[in-house]
């Protein structure tokens, strides 16, 4: 049966995914760094929007996050499709 609170599942999935990206781009640290920057920008924008209680439109939408990551992960279809599983509105 599915877990009532599957937060640990999401957490483990995220850990495995970050680890996979780190390994894949071991020789290209700039790509990994850019990926982290996209995530952090997204998180910051989400926080701003939340704090402004609807009076602020995030500059980085889920669609734009996906587009940026797709550009970064070109030729890494498996990483990109797995990333899509994390996005709230992809």
């Amino acid at each position: 049966p599915p877990l009532q609170n599957n937060q640990p599942v999401e957490f483990n999935h995220a850990i495995n995914y970050v680890n996979k990206i780190k390994n894949r781009f071991q020789g290209q640290p700039d790509i990994y760094k850019s990926f982290l920057e996209i995530l952090h920008t997204y998180q910051k924008e989400q926080r701003n929007a939340k704090e402004a209680a609807g009076n602020y439109t995030p500059a980085l939408t889920e669609q734009e996050v996906y587009t940026q990551v797709a550009r970064l992960f070109k030729n890494q279809e498996d990483l990109l499709s797995e990333f899509g599983q994390f996005l709230p509105d992809a």
């Binding site: 599957n6 937060q7 999401e10 957490f11 999935h13 995220a14 850990i15 995914y17 970050v18 680890n19 780190k22 990926f35 982290l36 995530l39 952090h40 997204y42 998180q43 599983q85 994390f86 996005l87 709230p88 509105d89």
Partner: peptide, 27 residues
């Protein structure tokens, strides 16, 4: 074993909160 920096951990945090948000919006 994982060798995660604080930056990696925050990426894990963002990704899992995204997934949580996705689950909430889908259900």
């Amino acid at each position: 074993s994982y060798d995660f920096t604080p930056l990696d951990s925050s990426a894990v945090y963002v990704l899992s909160s995204m997934a949580r948000q996705r689950r909430t919006s889908l259900s």
